[in-house]
Design a protein around this nucleic acid. Structure first.
Length: 589
RNA sequence: GCGGGUGUAGUUCAAUGGUAGAACGCGGGCCUCCCAUGCCUGAGGCGAGGGUUCGAUUCCCUUCACCCGCUCCA
C-alpha cells in the first residue's frame, strides 16, 4: 500500500507542471496519448539546462570525451547484434485462470493428460459460455482435479452452478501451453515487441523493416571506429550522446517516469582491457577504498574506471541540486547482472512513488564492440603503438600469462555468443595474438542516464510549500520550487516596484535588457510586488531584482542600485546595477 | 495486457434528466514605496463517440486519458 501523502505530492507536482507550463500531456486536445508527454515553456528551459550541463561537463570540460549525434533509425542488424530483437520481442502467454504472464519459450515443458472442455452452462440460469478451455494434469491424477479448475475458470466468466460440456481427455508430451503452477491453459503465444517498428521507404514490407532505437548507446558503438579515426583521441576515451529513444512499454506509469518516447544521456567510455593495462604498467591498480579515486591514471583497470564514473556521476547530480543523500547507490548482485556485465551500479533517486533508477553505470566488458565486430564483419580492434612496444619488452612468461588470460576471456565470450567450439578456439587465439601487434577490442564503462526521469526527480526534489499567516491570521500556502540556479528555467525576475510610475518601468526595462543577453530573465509588472515574487517562487526562479525609488536616486547614495531578493530565504541585498551581471553569472552557470 | 477507481474552467472542487457554480489562477483598469493588498471588470468548462429520452454534463454502451494494484521494465 502506498502512503496517501505520497500520492498527494505526485498529484500536486503533476498539476503544478500543467498549471505553470512544465509538462503537458501530449496531444491533449485529442484526448492525449498514453506514454507521451510534452514539455511546456518552463519545462523546455529546465530540460535544456540539464542537458547542456551534462553535455558541458562531459565534453567541453574534459579532454577525453567527444560528442556524437546519431540518427534514431539505424540499420536493423544493429538490433540483432545488440540483442534487442531477441530480448525485446519474446512471445508471451497469459494464464487464463490467474492471468499470470509467462515468456512462452521459458515455460517448463509439461507432460500428462489434458482435459478439454468445449464450454459450460449454468445449471440454474441456463446461461452458456462457449469459450473452450483445458487443464493439464500430471499422469495419474483423477479428472476431478481438472474439473475443479475448469469450474473456477467458468465461474470467473459469470456462471454460478457450472455444468462442464464436451469433456475430452488427451495425452500431452512436453507442452508449453499450460501453466506449470496450476495446469490451466494459457493464451496463444503473442509477440511482444518493445521496439517501435517502421518501414524505410514508401512501401511497407518485411524487407524494409526498421526500428526506432530503444537506446542511444548502440549508435555510439557502431560509430566507434569513425570517431576514433577522426577525433585524434587515444585510448582511453569516451563518446557522449544525448538523444531520443523509444520503447513500446507495456505500462507507462508514474507521470513521465516511464514514457514510450524519452531522452537519454549516455556516455560510452572505452578503456583498455586489464591485460593490456598490465602489459603497459606492470600491474593493474586496485581500488583503495570507497569514494572518488581521483584523477585517472594509466594503471587503472575496469574496476577503477567504473568506480571513477560512479563517483563522477554522483558529483554531477550534486552540482545540479540532487545531493548525495537524495540518491541511493545500488550495486547489482551477480545474479542480477546482464550476462555481459562485469558490474552495474544503479543510481536511484527517492521519488515520491518509490526509490527508482535515475542512471545505470555498467561495466560492459568488450561485449558490445565484439558483437558488432561479429555481426558486421568489420574489425573493432584498436591499434595501440605503446602496447606493441611494451609487449615486445615483456618477459616471456608474463607474455604467456597475459596472452592466456586474454584468450580465455575472448573464448568465454565467443562460446557464450554461440560460436562453434573449434571456431571459438581459433578466433580467441587470433584475438590474443593481436596483443603482440598492439591490437585489442576496448572494454566499455557506460554511464547511462534518463533525462526525463531526472527532470521529474528535480521537480519533486525542488517542490516545497511555505505556509504564511498574515496580520489578520489568515493562512496561505505558497508553492516554491527550490531548483539549483544552474537548472532553474528562469534565472532572474525583473520588476519595477510599481507599474504606474513610468520612470520605474523604464529603468526596469533597462535592467531587463541588460541581463537577458546573458541568461533567461522574466520581466513582470502585473500585480503587487509580493504576488510577483510568489509567481517566480512557483516557477523556481532563484533571484528577483526590483527597481525602486532609490534606484532612481531618491536616496542619492543608492542611485543606480537595485534590490536582489533570494528565493529560498526571502533575503534582500542592495547591489549596483553595474555589478549585477558579475554577481549573477557565477551563480547561474 | 488484466482488475479497481476517476474524468465538470488553467488548477482544486461543487451542483444538476431541462445545457453549470465557487475558490485560486489568468487578462484589462484603478490603487499600491518590497513578499499572493483592495476595488472594478473580462475571458474561460461538462475528455471523445454512440444509444435511451421531448430533452443527457447527469442514465446506458464503447472509446480515450489519468490514478492505484498485478504484470512488464532487455
Amino acid at each position: 500500500m502506498s502512503d496517501p501523502k505520497v500520492n498527494e505530492l505526485m498529484e500536486k507536482v503533476v498539476s503544478l507542471c500543467k498549471r505553470r507550463g512544465f509538462i503537458f500531456p501530449s496531444s491533449e486536445i485529442y484526448g492525449g496519448i498514453n506514454g507521451f508527454w510534452d514539455y511546456g515553456p518552463l519545462g523546455a528551459e529546465l530540460k535544456r539546462n540539464v542537458k547542456e550541463l551534462w553535455w558541458h561537463s562531459m565534453t567541453r570540460h574534459r579532454e577525453d570525451v567527444v560528442g556524437l549525434e546519431a540518427t534514431i533509425i539505424m540499420h536493423p542488424q544493429i538490433w540483432r547484434a545488440s540483442g534487442h530483437v531477441d530480448t525485446f520481442s519474446d512471445p508471451m502467454s497469459d494464464c487464463l485462470l490467474t492471468r499470470k504472464r509467462f515468456r512462452s519459450d521459458q515455460i517448463e515443458p509439461q507432460s500428462g493428460t489434458a482435459y478439454h472442455y468445449t464450454g459450460a452452462q449454468d445449471a440454474v440460469s441456463g446461461k452458456c459460455v462457449d469459450e473452450p478451455y483445458a487443464v493439464l494434469l500430471p499422469a495419474g491424477k483423477p479428472p476431478e482435479s481438472a474439473r475443479k479448475i475448469a469450474n473456477q475458470f467458468y465461474q470467473a466468466r459469470g456462471l454460478g452452478q457450472v455444468e462442464l460440456q464436451g469433456e475430452r481427455a488427451e495425452k500431452v508430451e512436453n507442452s508449453q501451453r499450460f501453466n506449470p503452477d496450476n495446469g490451466s491453459l494459457l493464451t496463444e503465444p503473442r509477440p511482444f515487441n518493445l521496439m517501435f517498428k517502421t518501414y524505410v521507404g514508401p512501401v511497407p514490407d518485411e524487407d524494409n523493416v526498421a526500428y526506432l532505437r530503444p537506446e542511444t548507446a548502440q549508435a555510439i558503438f557502431v560509430q566507434f571506429k569513425n570517431v576514433l579515426d577522426s577525433s585524434r583521441q587515444k585510448m582511453p576515451f569516451g563518446i557522449a550522446q544525448i538523444g531520443k529513444a523509444f520503447r513500446n512499454e507495456v505500462t507507462p506509469r508514474n507521470f513521465t517516469f516511464r514514457s514510450r518516447e524519452f531522452e537519454q544521456m549516455e556516455l560510452e567510455f572505452f578503456i583498455k582491457p586489464d591485460e593490456v593495462v598490465e602489459a603497459l604498467c606492470g600491474t593493474v591498480a586496485k581500488p583503495a577504498g570507497p569514494g572518488h579515486p581521483g584523477e585517472p591514471r594509466p594503471d587503472w583497470g575496469w574496476q577503477l574506471w567504473h568506480q571513477y564514473w560512479v563517483e563522477e556521476r554522483i558529483r554531477f547530480y550534486g552540482e545540479i541540486g540532487l545531493p548525495r543523500e537524495s540518491l541511493e547507490e545500488y550495486w547489482q548482485k551477480p545474479e542480477e547482472l546482464a550476462h555481459y556485465a562485469r558490474a552495474t551500479v544503479d543510481l536511484l533517486f527517492k521519488f515520491p512513488f518509490g526509490t527508482q533508477e535515475l542512471e545505470g553505470i555498467a561495466a560492459r566488458s568488450d561485449f558490445d564492440l565484439s558483437q558488432h565486430e561479429r555481426f558486421s564483419g568489420k574489425s573493432q580492434a584498436v591499434f595501440d603503438e605503446e602496447l606493441r612496444t611494451a609487449w615486445a619488452k615483456l618477459a616471456e612468461e608474463r607474455r604467456q600469462a597475459l596472452w592466456q588470460r586474454y584468450h580465455d576471456a575472448r573464448h568465454q565470450y565467443l562460446t557464450k555468443a554461440g560460436v562453434p567450439a573449434q571456431q571459438a578456439e581459433q578466433d580467441a587465439r587470433e584475438d590474443a595474438d593481436g596483443l603482440a601487434r598492439g591490437q585489442y577490442i576496448p572494454h566499455v564503462i557506460e554511464p547511462s542516464a534518463g533525462v526525463d526521469r531526472l527532470i521529474l526527480g528535480l521537480l519533486t526534489h525542488a517542490y516545497g510549500e511555505v505556509t504564511t499567516t498574515d496580520a489578520k491570521g489568515k493562512t496561505a500556502t505558497e508553492v516554491v520550487l527550490r531548483f539549483h540556479p544552474k537548472v532553474a528555467p528562469i534565472k532572474v525576475g525583473v520588476f519595477p516596484l510599481l507599474k504606474n510610475k513610468p520612470e520605474l518601468v523604464a529603468k526596469a526595462r533597462e535592467v531587463f535588457g541588460l541581463l537577458r543577453s546573458e541568461m533567461a530573465v522574466f520581466y513582470d509588472e502585473a500585480g503587487s510586488i509580493g504576488r510577483r515574487y510568489a509567481r517566480q517562487d512557483e516557477a523556481g526562479t532563484p533571484f528577483c531584482v526590483t527597481i525602486d525609488f532609490d534606484t532612481l536616486g531618491e536616496t542619492p547614495e543608492l542611485k543606480d542600485t537595485v534590490t536582489i531578493r533570494y528565493r529560498d530565504d526571502g533575503r534582500q541585498e542592495r547591489l549596483p546595477i553595474a555589478g549585477l551581471k558579475a554577481h549573477l553569472l557565477p551563480l547561474v552557470r
